[in-house]
């Protein structure tokens, strides 16, 4: 038997919004430690890695390790049926063919359950080695989303350059060029509004706007986003999810042909 109950059910709604445009289907791996999901987009350019720790749930029971293959479009449709303040429970038997989502209103007066068929997926799992990044930028998630959206008007790609002076986002194309520079915050009253940069060496890489804009669908999950960059390593874009876990996106850079 598997059962995971989350009082802040809106987190599940936001997670689905954050992955459904990038991935059509994915396996949810459930074990003692919690729920993980790892999947690449069809083009194998980006990867989503989600981790929800069991201790972050209000109730968590997993008698046997489970892998549940789900169509994320269908899962998103079901989670749209949950209210923002609903308590969400995900339930499955051992070796399940289906998964059940239960939504309870805060006052307990309304309860709905939705059963979804599972899929048998044969997806490639990648080993993601731990690495020391050359630059780690933390900034407000809304600001990053805004910059990606704004610069996408100028071209297909964004150059992210990071140095001691700060982080610069650049794009150019037919209509002209655009640069957005952010300096490290000097005086921070609110931590979530801060821009911080940890730099070992300056870096500058080019990334496809299309994917960056997919990643920013996770913005409602977190006040801050962390961008980690290193030579010969994909960009990592990370959003913390309350005190339950995080969603990480990896993106291969563009290179000069």
């Amino acid at each position: 038997m598997f059962e995971a109950r989350l009082a802040k059910g809106a987190i599940f709604k936001k997670i689905l919004e954050a992955v459904k445009d990038l991935l059509t289907e994915a396996s949810w791996d459930c074990g003692d430690m919690g729920i993980t999901l790892q999947a690449m987009d069809n083009a194998h350019v980006s990867l989503v890695s989600l981790n929800l720790r069991s201790d972050g749930f209000d109730k968590y029971r997993c008698d046997r390790n489970l892998t549940m293959g789900m169509n994320l479009g269908s899962m998103s449709k079901i989670l749209k049926c949950a209210g923002n303040d609903d308590i969400v429970t995900i339930r499955a038997q051992d070796n399940p063919d289906t998964v059940t989502f239960v939504f309870e209103s805060e006052n307990g007066e309304k309860q709905s359950d939705y059963e979804m068929k599972l899929m048998s997926l044969d997806l490639e799992h990648l080993q993601i080695p731990e690495t020391e990044y050359a630059c780690v930028v933390k900034m407000p998630a809304g600001e990053f989303a805004r910059i990606c959206r704004d610069l996408s008007q100028f071209g297909d790609s964004i150059v992210i350059s990071c140095s001691k002076q700060g982080v610069k986002f650049s794009a150019s194309g037919d209509i002209g060029s655009a640069n957005v520079k952010l300096a490290q915050s000097s005086n921070v009253d609110k931590e979530e509004e801060a821009v911080t940069i940890e730099m070992q060496e300056p870096v500058s890489f080019t990334y496809a706007c299309r994917y960056l804009n997919f990643f920013t669908k996770a913005t409602p999950l977190s006040a801050q986003v962390k961008l980690s960059m290193s030579p010969e390593y994909p960009l990592m874009v990370e959003y913390a999810i309350d005190d339950i876990g995080q969603i990480r996106y990896f993106l291969a850079p563009k290179i000069e042909d």
């Binding site: 194998h44 350019v45 990867l47 990648l126 080993q127």
Partner: peptide
């Protein structure tokens, strides 16, 4: 002209 690299060239199968 820019080429898009794939993740497979960075990460190996688990």
């Amino acid at each position: 002209k820019q080429g898009q690299r794939r993740l497979d060239s960075f990460f190996t199968a688990a």
